[in-house]
Amino acid sequence: MLAVKIENVTKIYKKRYLLKTKQSIGVKDLNLEINEGETFGLLGLNGAGKTTTIKLLLGLLRPDSGNCFIYGHKVPARAASDLVGYLPESPYFYRYLTAQEIIDFYGKVSGVPDRVRGEKIEEILELVNLTANRHKRLSEFSKGMLQRVGIAQALIHDPKVLFFDELITGLDPVGITEMRALILRLKERKKTIILSSHIISEVVKVCDRVGIIVEGKLARIVNLADLTSKGDELEQIFLKLVMPAEVAA
């Protein structure tokens, strides 16, 4: 079953100034299909269009042409929102709330019914290992702990598709290891995970397939099972795509 489908999507950013409008390409003619239960990596340089792709799928941005679908629901739609969980790059949270309060809050706005929410919160806190710190305000949290809160809020309504944007950027090695373990646990639960990154070695460790985005276009999709020495090979493919001239030389 298809979890995510992107159909001929083009997004052009327009910045309006007083007299002229400046345009820049977000993504161009993007086509992509991701299966249920798959872990898909979006690989690209900074500004290549990874975040734009994710935002288009979430309905935060509207495509200029083309359509995005989540389980067949055309984005934006409430039914689609029910099915997705999102963790943006270096997210901010309401620092005046405690860990439990913030997860409860996002549970409420995601429509998790009152009678199961308490239970659900317990489960999620356990999963991301925050049970001991549940009553601390977020202003006292470390970066790694905040990232775990971020995962928790994305999971509270038990979505089928998860979007993680630059999940490990800025984390220390311990934090990175924790996140990797978390993703593998989510994989076991048959979640569809889409994560963006520019760190090849990390993508290789968790993903099933990787899409390489270059200047707003999907340059190539690599099935990691097809590669023998995953890390090195993917790096070669990636470098060839982003700077073909130099590698060729």
Binding site: L60, A79, S81, P88, P91, F93, Y94, V109, Q153, H157
Partner: peptide, 14 residues
């Protein structure tokens, strides 16, 4: 500005 709005606008919330 804080980007906390992302987390709300991706919810099933009008």
């Amino acid at each position: 500005e804080n980007r906390t709005i992302y987390l709300l606008m991706t919810r099933p919330l009008h």
